[in-house]
Amino acid sequence: MKLKQMLIASLCLLAFAAQGFASDIELAKKSTLNKIMERKELRIGLDPGYQPFEMTNKKGEVVGFDVDIAKELAKSMGVKLTIVNTDYDGIIPALLTDKFDIILSGMTITQSRNLQINFADPYIVVGQAIILNKNLKGKVNSYKDLNDPKYTVASRIGTTGEMATKRMIPKAKYKSFDKEADGAMDVVNGQADAFIYDLPFGVVFMAQHGNGKAILLDKPFTYEPLGMGVRKGDPDFLNYLNNFLRQIKADGRYDRIYDKWIKSTGWFKNM
């Protein structure tokens, strides 16, 4: 009797295992990774207005840190790369409606975004910094000093810069901009006291437009990992992306891209 029960139990376990295996196969078939390989094209969604991650050069080409990462990703798959130019405030809905395969657009991994999409492991960590009106030198030394109704603070709409400003500098008057360069120029032109945005942008903007016209408080006051965003329910694609990131960080490709766009300023002349 016991032997018969054990055989029945074993058969049930095998049936469940087979069912689970079949489900895994079906899930793999539906993976974005499979679709990319079938169409031989990787579609990347980005908004080319975030230096040095994605921007348009004098030739009208979209270039930058994220674009070079995307090129390496497409090369690793042996497929064509297509850049899908998308406004940042609609980039998550565009991913969810299959306008492209991945968001690779300087997107900070946040809990609210993670409720809508999944993220691969961070490929770089940045934080919010302050481009400050030059007349406030010595008066404002951190974001805490800006938390006063007498100051006007700006950032880009729909970004973590805006979130950080509203959360950490709630007493200041707030101005939002569609493009980060416009908000930073508002400080240079004396129409805002500070612009809050990611440190890499602050460094680039100051080198191009801010010398002697504004001050960069370059100690980030937030921790912000950037990641590639993908649709939920796709573990195979996430696995591929995470292994890809480990590989390029280990073999020197990532360092070359980082040095080219983050450490160097040689690309300024082509913008």
Rank of each mutant, 00 (worst) to 15 (best):
47 D>S: 12
46 L>P: 02
155 S>P: 10
62 V>Y: 00
120 A>V: 05
25 I>D: 04
142 S>F: 05
154 A>Q: 13
74 A>D: 00
104 L>Y: 01
28 A>C: 08
97 T>S: 14
121 D>T: 14
140 V>L: 14
91 I>P: 01
63 V>W: 01
124 I>Y: 09
45 G>D: 01
74 A>Q: 03
56 T>R: 06
69 I>T: 03
124 I>V: 11
67 V>C: 04
114 N>T: 08
60 G>D: 03
74 A>K: 00
93 P>I: 11
155 S>Y: 07
43 R>V: 12
129 A>S: 07
105 S>V: 09
79 V>L: 03
58 K>D: 14
116 Q>K: 10
87 D>E: 11
93 P>T: 12
162 E>G: 13
60 G>E: 01
106 G>A: 15
30 K>R: 15
35 K>G: 07
74 A>Y: 00
67 V>K: 01
60 G>P: 05
127 G>W: 06
155 S>I: 14
42 L>W: 01
56 T>M: 07
85 N>P: 03
30 K>Y: 09
58 K>P: 10
58 K>N: 15
57 N>D: 15
112 S>E: 14
159 T>V: 08
142 S>N: 04
149 P>K: 12
151 Y>W: 12
125 V>R: 09
53 F>T: 03
27 L>W: 11
90 G>Y: 13
99 K>I: 09
106 G>P: 13
40 K>G: 02
72 E>Y: 05
59 K>D: 15
139 K>Q: 11
121 D>F: 08
47 D>I: 10
112 S>I: 12
120 A>C: 07
44 I>E: 00
141 N>V: 15
39 R>F: 00
35 K>Q: 13
66 D>S: 12
23 S>K: 15
102 I>V: 14
149 P>G: 09
49 G>R: 11
65 F>L: 04
75 K>L: 08
153 V>G: 08
39 R>G: 01
73 L>Q: 01
131 I>T: 04
163 M>Y: 12
129 A>H: 01
60 G>I: 04
26 E>N: 07
153 V>Q: 08
45 G>E: 00
91 I>V: 07
117 I>D: 03
81 L>F: 00
161 G>I: 08
31 S>I: 14
69 I>G: 05
53 F>P: 04
153 V>E: 07
58 K>V: 13
94 A>H: 07
77 M>C: 05
126 V>T: 13
35 K>H: 11
143 Y>L: 05
56 T>N: 02
36 I>D: 00
81 L>E: 00
44 I>K: 02
92 I>T: 11
54 E>M: 10
90 G>V: 13
77 M>D: 03
105 S>N: 10
108 T>D: 10
132 L>T: 02
96 L>Y: 09
79 V>M: 04
147 N>D: 15
91 I>T: 02
118 N>V: 13
64 G>P: 13
84 V>A: 02
65 F>T: 02
65 F>V: 02
59 K>V: 11
93 P>E: 08
125 V>F: 05
42 L>C: 01
58 K>M: 14
92 I>W: 05
93 P>D: 11
113 R>C: 13
82 T>W: 02
132 L>E: 06
119 F>R: 10
39 R>D: 02
127 G>A: 04
115 L>E: 15
107 M>L: 15
